[in-house]
Design a protein around this nucleic acid. Structure first.
Length: 113
DNA sequence: CGTATGACGAGCC
DNA sequence: AGGCTCGCCATAC
């Protein structure tokens, strides 16, 4: 389960962001946004997943912006060229990820249980 | 096996 | 705009 989530997150191109709900929808579980958040929250360290490119539907970092993790996330995204507005929001119309194309999505969903 | 727990999201006020 | 309530769902215990 988590592997599939990580797999999708790895497809997000640098400089783009996706929402938790969007990841869930791509995996065919449109209501499991919280699960996606949990998967990234409990991400093993050192694993190759660009977790910083996943934010919430409002375009903000989804936890305390002053926490060390959030500061790192914001720094990583800014390095990739993502711009935060004065309220710490990212414009999803500009930086939002279009998502997988049909073929990629199909391939992902057909993977073994 | 029932409850609790969120890096969520939509809706309502 | 900002805050609160509820529904959701895979894990943890």
């Amino acid at each position: 389960m988590f592997e599939q989530i990580y797999e999708v997150v790895r497809r997000i191109p640098p400089g783009r962001v996706a929402t938790y709900g969007q990841i869930a929808r791509l995996l065919g579980m449109p209501r499991a946004a919280r699960t996606v958040g949990w998967a990234l929250h409990t991400l093993p360290e050192g694993i190759d997943v660009p977790w910083q490119r996943v934010i919430n539907a409002r375009g903000t970092i989804s936890f305390d912006p002053d926490s060390p993790g959030a500061v790192i996330q914001r720094a990583l995204l800014e390095e990739e060229g993502v711009v935060f507005d004065e309220k710490g929001r990212i414009d999803l119309d500009v930086y939002g990820w279009a998502g997988l194309d049909l073929a990629e999505r199909q391939q992902l969903l057909e993977r073994d249980p």
